[in-house]
Design a binder for these strands. Sequence first.
DNA 1: TATTGTTATACTCTATAACTATA
DNA 2: TATAGTTATAGAGTATAACAATA
Lengths: 140, 140
Amino acid sequence: MQDPLTQLPGYVLRRASAAALARLNERLAPLGLRHIDVALMLLVEATPGLTPSRAGRVLDIQRANMVPLVARLESRSLMARQRVDGRSHALRLTAEGRSRLSRARAVVAHCEAALLRPVPVKLRPHVLPILMALWNPQDE
Amino acid sequence: MQDPLTQLPGYVLRRASAAALARLNERLAPLGLRHIDVALMLLVEATPGLTPSRAGRVLDIQRANMVPLVARLESRSLMARQRVDGRSHALRLTAEGRSRLSRARAVVAHCEAALLRPVPVKLRPHVLPILMALWNPQDE
DNA sequence: TATTGTTATACTCTATAACTATA
DNA sequence: TATAGTTATAGAGTATAACAATA
């Protein structure tokens, strides 16, 4: 018998994603971070002053779910909130946050490299374009 | 500002997977099925008599989590369990399960097609090989 | 009116530990 | 001793509704 699911790109996409995520989280755990923390920190580093709402829109995280995420990073002194408005907060990394992120970035780079390693060298340039295309499907 | 995360295959992999899964579940909902139900049904169809334990190993689902999954399909008369052993159960699709699965398969085919549509035709043959490679990463 | 941050809440998915009965 | 099925449970992750304060 042969597993019929491995013929379905969508299924393999899910399995590959779940496996990669699990390994990344495993390697980030010693830093006290999860993948989602690093995603937000990378985004805030690239866009200082970003608000939680806007960050949530970029990361596809609901406003309500940003609250515990930001609070957790703030409570660990990795991120700081600053009122910019009567209702908006500007997010910035603290010095400790930047230093933690540089270590996390090394972990991410390691995992990204491990992810690509089994892809034949000739196909590697196609990986990101293909994944970007899969991210943006057209329903008819 | 540019989103630094879209340069990371691992991140795009996750976003693509989550988006594809959400759309699939949305389209399966009218059939009363979720993606995981269809995955199990496809597997059991291809391997009649499979036990929940073995199915779980193929699908990467814990033994304990197979229980409510199989129970739900059984309670809807889509799948049947048969004792084969003092401790093992053989899983099979019922006639209703097969008919429901044929409708689900059409939904899956539609979603898979929508997933691949934005990929340039020349790159499409590389999609599955690349995803299979990403699924099986080598850590060093 | 629309948006931000927030609380509360519920639901799915997943992981672990422990138990029984069988092989 | 190892495996199958099961129960109970806890933790992520995610989604929705509602509210106050502000734009």
